[in-house]
Every structure is written in structure tokens, then in C-alpha cells.
């Protein structure tokens, strides 16, 4: 039963990911990417990682993709937003395939088969929060600070210039 669902969601995740990168239209791509994220969330849920599954939906499928869609739809006509694939594609894909092959080789060659098993409640909200807010609280707070700096930087970059060129236009 579990294997069935694993192959179902895993297969769907792979298929939707492939569809995502083969569409030429940015908005269509984005929709397929959302489907892919949802399948990945289902895989997380099957691993008893409920918290990560919900966060996958909430943050990736929910928040980030809404932003993606908003921006792609807002900039220019929806049917004209084409993805620029460029000339670097052969190079990038070669490197990616090589990396993937190397990774697969390492995984199949590894001596250490299987990971130590963890309890079913390991992925629960309480356990994840204990890890984040007690065991690794310093790293957690530093990450928060980093994100804050990024937000302030983004606001600074996006602000309207007070004087000089481009006055009245503003950067959107």
C-alpha cells in the first residue's frame, strides 16, 4: 500500500517536474511546478514528516508560487512571457547530468546501507520546534537575522529614488 502511494506520488512529481521544464509559457510552467510541489509534499507526509509536508505546501506551493504567478502575470502580457533558454543550456545540462551520475554512483557504492530509524513522532510539530528553538536556537535566530537583512535590502533596492533621473517613473 505504502509502496503504491510512493510510486504514485513520486512518479507524478517526476512527470510534473518534466512538464514544468518543457513548457515554453511561463505561467503554464508555474502551474505545473505547483503540482510538483504538492506531490513532493505528499511524499513528505508519507514519511511521517507532517510539519515539513505542511510547510512545503504553505511556503513553496502557497506563498512563493503565488508571488511567482503574480510577478509573471503582472509583467507584460501573459501569453508573451516566454522563458529565455539561451545558449548555455547544453553546458548546464551536461554538468547537471554528470553531477547526477556521480551522485547516483556514490549512493549505490556506499557501504552504509540505510539510515538509523527514527520514531514516528520525529516529524511532529513539537519535535521539530524543539530541535529548532531549543537545540539549534542560535542558528535559527541568525538565519532569521539574515532574512531580515535581505528584506531590508530588498526594500532599499525597490524604493523610489528621491531625486535625479527617472523621477516620476519610480521603480515598480
Amino acid at each position: 500500500m505504502e509502496a503504491l502511494f510512493f510510486y504514485l506520488f513520486g512518479g507524478l512529481a517526476v512527470i510534473t517536474a518534466l512538464v514544468t521544464i518543457t513548457r515554453r509559457d511561463a505561467v503554464t510552467s508555474a502551474f505545473w511546478l505547483i503540482a510538483c510541489f504538492l506531490n513532493v509534499a505528499a511524499l513528505f507526509a508519507m514519511l511521517s514528516a507532517q510539519f515539513i509536508a505542511v510547510m512545503q505546501i504553505l511556503i513553496y506551493a502557497g506563498a512563493i508560487m503565488v508571488f511567482f504567478l503574480f510577478v509573471t502575470m503582472f509583467l507584460g502580457e501573459p501569453r508573451r512571457v516566454r522563458l529565455n533558454r539561451g545558449r548555455a543550456i547544453p553546458l548546464i545540462s551536461t554538468v547537471t547530468v554528470l553531477l547526477l551520475a556521480y551522485l547516483l554512483m556514490r549512493i549505490t557504492n556506499t557501504q552504509h546501507r540505510g539510515f538509523p530509524s527514527i520514531s514516528d513522532s520525529y516529524g511532529s510539530v513539537a519535535m521539530v520546534s524543539r530541535k529548532l528553538l531549543v537545540d539549534y536556537v542560535f542558528l535559527f535566530e541568525v538565519t532569521g537575522l539574515l532574512l531580515l537583512v535581505a528584506v531590508i535590502g530588498a526594500v532599499y533596492v525597490a524604493r523610489k529614488p528621491r531625486t535625479g533621473v527617472g523621477e516620476g517613473e519610480g521603480h515598480v
Binding site: 505561467v27 502551474f31 505547483i34 507532517q50 510539519f51 509536508a53 505542511v54 510547510m55 505546501i57 504553505l58 506551493a61 502557497g62 506563498a63 503565488v66 504567478l69 502575470m73 501573459p78 513522532s121 511532529s124 510539530v125 513539537a126
Partner: peptide, 25 residues
């Protein structure tokens, strides 16, 4: 029986916009 409980509500409502966006687009 979901341990995440109310977070599930937040996750699902965050998806609810897609129906409208899909229809609109």
C-alpha cells in the same frame, strides 16, 4: 488525525487562490 492541525488550515487556504488564478488566466 493531524498533528499539524491548524497549520493545515493555513496551508490549504494558501492554495485556495489558485482556482481563481487558473480560471482567470
Amino acid at each position: 488525525d493531524l498533528d499539524v492541525g491548524i497549520l493545515y488550515l493555513l496551508a490549504i487556504t494558501s492554495l485556495s487562490v489558485y482556482g481563481i488564478v487558473l480560471a482567470g488566466w
